[in-house]
Amino acid sequence: MTGFRDPVRLLDEPSTSAELRGLLEVARADTIDRTAVARIEGGVRARMLRAPGMPRRWGIGVSTAALIGWFALHSAASDPSTDALDGAAAPATSIATEPSPALPPTRLVAPAERVPSPSTRTDAPAPARATAPTPPQPRRRSPRSAAAPRASGRASMVATVNPAPETAREEARLLLAARRALALNPAAALARTDEHGRRFPDGALREERELVAVRALVALDRLGEARARADRFIAQVPTSIHRPAMIRARDPK
């Protein structure tokens, strides 16, 4: 259409000074971390739920109760009453540094259409939009729901779709206590996960419970049990968003 060509970017220009290069390299770094992403995500989710008529297209399988549990898990971090549960400080690996439990794994339209990273992207074709949106498919299914689970092994691990809000809060409270205990008192953390397992065997935060439990077992040097539990989890929920974290927990350096 025109004879214009994109100029060489300053960072790709050999004559660019080290000073300016340093500025631009810092500028291209991420400005927010995972915790901030989780906070933004939580804010958007909350407003989605509040706003009348707002399209609830966050993604897949996100029940209101699970959201409440997710928020409770985060907001309870500032609740002094929960600090007393174990007397332990929040561990370095707080839930905010992990993928949020209710968030399905992010996936752009298709691998071929994935937007490349800034350092590698080219003028790729724009992601397409279908003429009619595809209804999102539930990621978490209830074993008691009419829909059959994808695999028989998964049925025992998938979470209930729509627990009552108070149930979700209690689940979140228990798991928060477990996470907080993890750094200083892994035995207490494991006990909390056991309690969660007894009270909410098919709870909405069951996958998160398994992750905490495996971390606690590793911290207690019960590596065989940790590995067995992690392997069972990975086999039963191979598509869990916690799979990478579970593998890292199972195979500590």
Binding site: W58, L103, R107, A110, R129, P136
Partner: peptide, 27 residues
């Protein structure tokens, strides 16, 4: 152009848009 895009490509869900782009948007 939109006319050249594959017809069968599903629309991105909001979760996908958020997860892939929130850091770019923030920066």
């Amino acid at each position: 152009s939109a006319a050249t895009l594959p017809e069968a490509m599903p629309a991105p869900t909001f979760a996908e848009v958020f997860g892939e782009h929130v850091r770019y948007v923030a920066r």
